[in-house]
């Protein structure tokens, strides 16, 4: 227990985070490259066609993992926002900024792949239904958090404002998740379910699960890389960074 508490304390130190993450980066790079090439080949080449959508359903192997991360990234960011507001841990603010950037990118991918998928299946690129609109709002919230974190001369002020916005924006997450159940929407209901059998044939489901794992690894990798760059930028006056650059 004591070592766990110590671990979290150390995690709050940019210097320690920088050192430990340099070992984690290659691990997650290999994991995401390996899993992603496996998942893409299995999903795009070997998974069977869909009985209705034919081959166009295969965009699910990009669309669903990126949508997953777009939401789970927000959970992590909201948690970091709370940690920052309560304990003023500097590292929490740094990773929060990384979450806003990577989360925005993942949401953007989910929106674009959704539009590309929507054209052949629904018959339209875009529809203002509850799911699609709430995802667009999520994208704007991510952008807003990042913009706000950079809007002040003093970094702490920006971090504080961004953390508060991140907490307020948390309400959007359950709305996105349940939008297709609460309202009449064009977007279909959830295929992957935690409590019941998934509404997808296992030959198609397996590559999807691999792709979700791969995208999670890619997400961790991107967060680490972005946070490391942010650490160097924000700690540039510290001695250990000067030693590092030399």
């Amino acid at each position: 227990m004591k070592s766990l508490v110590q671990f979290f304390f150390k995690l709050g130190s940019p210097n320690w985070f920088y050192k430990v993450s340099s070992y984690l980066v290659p691990v997650f790079a290999l994991l995401s490259i390996g899993l992603m090439s496996w998942g893409l080949v299995a999903g795009l080449l070997y998974a069977p066609m869909d009985f209705k959508q034919g081959n166009s359903y295969r965009i699910i192997y990009i669309h669903v993992p990126s949508s997953f991360i777009a939401l789970s990234c927000y959970y992590m960011m909201a948690l970091l926002a709370a940690v920052y507001l309560i304990w003023r841990t500097k590292m929490a603010a740094i990773v929060l900024r990384s979450c806003a950037v990577i989360g925005a990118a993942m949401t953007f991918i989910a929106l674009v792949t959704g539009a590309i998928w929507g054209k052949p299946t629904w018959g339209t690129w875009w529809v203002w239904d509850a799911r699609v609109t709430s995802m667009l709002v999520l994208f704007f919230i991510y952008m807003g958090i990042f913009a706000l974190s950079k809007a002040y001369e003093r970094e702490e002020l920006g971090s504080k404002a961004a953390a508060i916005l991140a907490l307020v924006g948390t309400v959007n997450i359950p709305i996105i998740y349940w939008s297709v159940d609460w309202w009449f929407a064009l977007h279909q209901g959830a295929t992957l379910k935690l409590t019941e059998k998934s509404a997808m044939d296992s030959a198609m489901l397996f590559p999807l699960l691999v792709m979700i794992a791969a995208t999670y690894c890619l997400y961790v990798l991107l967060i680490l890389l972005h946070s490391r760059a942010e650490i160097i930028r924000s700690e540039q006056r510290k001695q250990w960074v000067k030693d590092l650059v030399k």
């Binding site: 069977p48 066609m49 869909d50 009985f51 209705k52 959508q53 359903y57 699910i60 299946t121 629904w122 018959g123 339209t124 529809v127 064009l186 279909q188 209901g189 959830a190 295929t191 509404a199 997808m200 044939d201 030959a203 198609m204």
Partner: peptide, 12 residues
């Protein structure tokens, strides 16, 4: 007219 597909995916 927009098609609303369901959440079921399976091979033909």
């Amino acid at each position: 007219v927009l098609a609303k597909h369901d959440e079921n995916y399976m091979p033909p």
